[in-house]
Design a protein around this nucleic acid. Structure first.
Lengths: 346, 346
DNA sequence: TTGATTAGATTAAACGTTTGACTTAGATAA
DNA sequence: TTATCTAAGTCAAACGTTTAATCTAATCAA
């Protein structure tokens, strides 16, 4: 198989030294190469489709135009939207993405970190497990020591002091309870995964605080231990809610829409009228919310913008080259659609 | 900021030469380093979290454990499923993915190719425009000359002689027409984007051939010129079909499910009963098909498996290091759900 | 004892860039 | 004339690896 064009190839054709070619193509210190030769070299480079070898450049001290991205599951619309935002901003900034799908598995995440170090990426955007005290937190420290800027996305303050892109999950859950209250609901339940994830805890605390502040009972919580995007797991909680249908008029579902949608599907198949018999609020506002019947009322996270913001902030931090403690909190927003019934409180 | 651990660091701690460390850590030619020293070096490497610099390794002739992946839109479930398959197989094979979202734009795809060359990736999985005669086809040739193995995915035979992962799009469309025929439909329409994409042409030819073979009128085709996943564009065709509702009892929608789902949404909002007044068959079998009301009958493409197969084949080709003309055709399958009405033909 | 063998380690070159130091030749100043 | 300056290039070292070639003792055979 062939090889890529090098400076040497160009040099020998142009009849100059490798250094001259490098100087000409980078054109930084004005006037070290005559205009005539610069032109000749550029012509040859174009003809041979020359692209500098970033591996070699990095060895000489330039940073790799590459960042690592760790997501739980790229097929989850939430993450694919976010990823697109990251990549779009990256393209504008000349920074590209090594994607890693980690399935929320410690082992996979460990491999990802090793790969990031091995590639000497300039930075890493992490949406992983990385709880304080875990092995992974140490690995993140290693990344940092290694010179790789780390940025967390969609993770809680509780996940340590890292630059961070997030929404206020506590407040978002608080607001959705308030919203349901304003629609007349008083018996509001929570469906939550038992994932050991701090953003889930934040949302759960938001739910509880709101219920307490409103003087309502905050103990109607359905816990689901296993849950994946592609089904399995939703049925168990959905059924649990079904047999206790009179215990609530509305339910808030976290982590979010995909679970909510599966529950709704189950309830509809079992003859429950949504929202007449049960109102539902999701979380994330993925595209699918628009096509369910009825369309799902949910809390919007600006996924795409968060992705963009993450890449922009990361590149900025990389350029600064030092450790600034910074976070950017994006605005959530309740999107009213068809799964919440308005109740007239006498 | 810190720097990553190098062989040199380890060597100076262990009190041996850099070469010895390299030999010890790679452990290939048995018995060139004493067991005692190997152990000492491994200990130090572990303690310092040493990860070899793949950029340097590549310079010395090893291939980068990195392949480029070009997709039209990662937020489209079809591509994110495929991408996950690619990454899962990649992890098993020790090969990682630089992702590029190109939005079907020539300019973006050109940038992607340049980046792939610049990074000296070992291979590239391309789901791009790359029609024969286009600038892009030349770029693919450049990739190949540069030593980057190229593999196409979800692209037609008409897109040139490249190793390829695909389904038989002609046959899949043919089969869905046959299926509708067996359900009693005789007036079968086609909704198709006007994209200049060979797989669309293949499917359209499949539709026409099937209609002709069945002795049916193959001219009821609705063409839609602009269409994106996130809405806009579907309304125009959907409306066109609506005003001509008596012209067909069923419609086949290509490229696929996302468009079909939007159309159904429009029709339902305008009082059309699905499937009573109009049967619909989609294409791709994305997850969303299961949650629409009624769930969408569609042609399944094994997206995840195709992704896996792509990475496996690519790595194989890279290892072989030569150009084999090969293609792998995956099986499509009609998934019967709720959008096709069974008609009793007197 | 001498010469050959071998295990175990080192040297040095190379990969493709970048860049500070250096060279050369022509131009200018004194 | 001689010294100085400048423009336009080249040299060579370095980045972190890998590996063929080489070196060095210690071991062994005769």
């Amino acid at each position: 198989m062939g090889k890529a064009t090098t400076l040497k190839d160009i040099a020998s054709i142009a009849g100059v030294s490798v250094a001259t070619v490098s100087l000409a193509l980078n054109g930084k210190p004005e006037g070290r190469v005559s205009a005539e030769i610069v032109e000749r070299i550029e012509e040859i480079a174009r003809k041979l489709n020359y692209q500098p070898d970033v591996n070699a450049q990095r060895l000489k001290g330039k940073r790799l135009p590459l960042v690592g991205l760790l997501v739980p599951n790229i097929t989850n619309p939430f993450y694919s939207e976010m990823t697109k935002g990251i990549m779009d901003a990256g393209r504008e900034l000349g920074c590209y993405v090594v994607l890693f799908n980690a399935d929320n598995a410690h082992e996979s995440e460990a491999i990802a970190m090793e790969v990031f170090i091995s590639m000497r990426v300039a930075g890493a955007i992490i949406c992983g497990i990385c709880d304080p005290g875990t092995e992974e937190e140490k690995t993140l420290e290693t990344l940092k020591k290694t010179g790789i800027q780390v940025l967390m996305i969609d993770r809680s303050e509780w996940n340590g002091h890292w630059p961070r892109i997030m929404i206020d999950n506590f407040q978002a859950a608080y607001d959705s309870v308030t919203y349901l209250y304003k629609q007349g609901h008083r018996k509001i339940a929570l469906i939550a995964t038992a994932w050991d994830l701090n953003i889930i805890n934040d949302r759960e605390r938001g739910y509880k605080k709101a219920m307490q502040d409103l003087g309502l009972d905050d103990s109607c919580i359905y816990r689901i231990s296993t849950y994946q995007l592609t089904g399995m797991g939703a049925e168990t909680v959905a059924e649990e809610v079904l047999v206790n249908l009179d215990k609530q008029t509305a339910v808030l579902v976290i982590p979010g829409d995909t679970l909510a949608i599966e529950c709704i599907l189950y309830w509809k198949n079992h003859g429950v009228q949504i929202p007449e018999e049960l109102s539902v609020v999701g979380f994330d506002n993925i595209y699918m919310c628009q096509i369910t019947d009825p369309p799902l009322t949910t809390v919007d996270q600006p996924k795409y913008e968060m992705g963009r913001g993450a890449m922009e902030l990361l590149v900025q931090l990389i350029d600064e080259g030092q450790n600034r403690d910074c976070r950017k909190v994006y605005k959530h927003r309740i999107i009213e659609r068809g799964t919440v019934k308005k109740i007239n409180q006498g």
